[in-house]
Design a binder for these strands. Structure first.
Lengths: 235, 235
DNA sequence: CGACTGCCGACTGTCGACAGCTTTAAAAAC
DNA sequence: GTTTTTAAAGCTGTCGACAGTCGGCAGTCG
């Protein structure tokens, strides 16, 4: 395992060590400082971060439940490596959740929801113009979180949040998507239009198209066709 | 290097303490030995179970990710108390997942899948005749897990598994459902028929009906209309 | 030259302990 | 008798340590 990726101690200012470690690990994994399949040493991590092993272990379990790490008994934690099939499955599940959400949303589309979504699209467009890829992704996800929220089922939103961690991983695994800003904008405007029309069929078509585009980006964007991440650490 | 010819692993209890504690806690919560909203003391648990606090903490975090416990910083872990809205949300999400699954299943319905599902319904019917309520529920869930499995998206199945923990909680919260065995049987046979017909519309109708029945059972079965579990522990 | 065996280092699983925060309970003041 | 103050008890968050286990390496035997 590589030594500390980036000035780790700066991340820790005492309030809740578990969440801080989890946040640090999440960032490090998404930014590929830890490679897929790589083994994480609890001792090394605790040394690097200047904390004991207990919070590191609990944080690792947290990330395991989020699908970013997998644990092998008596072997330790490894960075999750997604293959093409798993990647397809993630997007299929996302489609499942968002189809359901947008259908519910048509049944209870409020002025408040409409305003919030429109505002978020504006923020997203602004972010798309900038250079900060991470922020663009976060604002994009936030738009979808808002949709799920206004769909009026918090458990649905929670399920989506469970997916977002893996989605970030998917997006991180492929190299920069550098899709055009106007593509992003129109893609989301279509969703707004469909919602405004109030037609379930139009909404479904819009969300299918929307996610289909994202999926295609990810699936064809990666390097290796079969395995997006290397597997076993070969020490 | 095959060791002894039959199941050597069965003799070796390689289950670590975390999983054992998690299993014990899950059982205790579902069987209402810990009431909803009740606070769980790490110290007390570790004393009772004869283990240290570390595995108890990690097990608690595991159950938190499964939605059986919730943690309040510096306060500890509490048994999750579901209110009516959350309960509706759980069943709505279940509907979302199973609709998607059964639609996928119609596209790839194999002889193997059909056989497995039919066999499971038989097992379920047999279980429904007995007195073991727990086993009946488990076999019922297993049928649905099989459906999800043969739908060909493991991530979808994983999402469902995440729900099953909460489903068991829902079912545990209401008093005995004591629904007639033949009701269970016909309800599942209808699903098999719809799948055999290969019609997506019929499948969707069947699954909507199926889950609708279960939902109605849970929603009307409970005692209090608003809060199914008591809230704050009052010691 | 290849395969097996025993040893060694590293690491995980688990434990007991300490510090700081929460809550409870008693004591004091009104 | 009620309210405020204060002390104590219990708890969680975190830490360092120990023991059992796993993977690798060298030495040995065929």
């Amino acid at each position: 395992m590589a030594l500390s990726p980036v000035a780790p101690k700066a991340f820790i200012h005492h309030q809740n060590l578990v969440e801080q470690v989890a946040g640090y690990l999440t960032q490090a994994i998404i930014q590929q400082h830890f490679l897929p399949g790589e083994r994480l040493s609890e001792v090394q991590l605790s040394r690097d971060l200047g904390v004991s092993r207990a919070p590191v272990r609990e944080a690792a379990r947290l990330l395991e439940s989020r699908g970013l790490l997998i644990s092998k008994p008596r072997r330790g934690f490894f960075v999750r490596a997604l293959n093409a099939v798993e990647l397809e499955d993630v997007f299929d599940l996302r489609l499942c959740l968002e189809r359901h959400a947008i259908q519910r949303l048509t049944e209870r589309y409020s002025v408040e929801a409409q305003r919030a979504l429109e505002q978020q699209v504006e923020i997203l467009c602004e972010a798309a113009l900038g250079n900060d890829e991470t922020r663009r992704i976060e604002e994009d996800l936030q738009f979808h979180r808002l949709m799920l929220h206004y769909a009026g089922n918090e458990r649905l939103l929670k399920a989506f949040d469970g997916l977002t961690h893996e989605l970030r991983l998917c997006i991180a695994l492929i190299t920069k998507t550098h899709d055009a800003p106007d593509t992003i904008a129109t893609s989301h405007f279509k969703l707004l239009e469909a919602l405004a029309s109030g037609s379930p069929a139009a909404c479904r078509e819009a969300i299918d198209y929307h996610i289909g585009v994202a999926r295609k980006f990810v699936v064809r964007g990666g390097g290796e066709p079969k395995e997006l991440g290397s597997q076993e650490s070969k020490r």
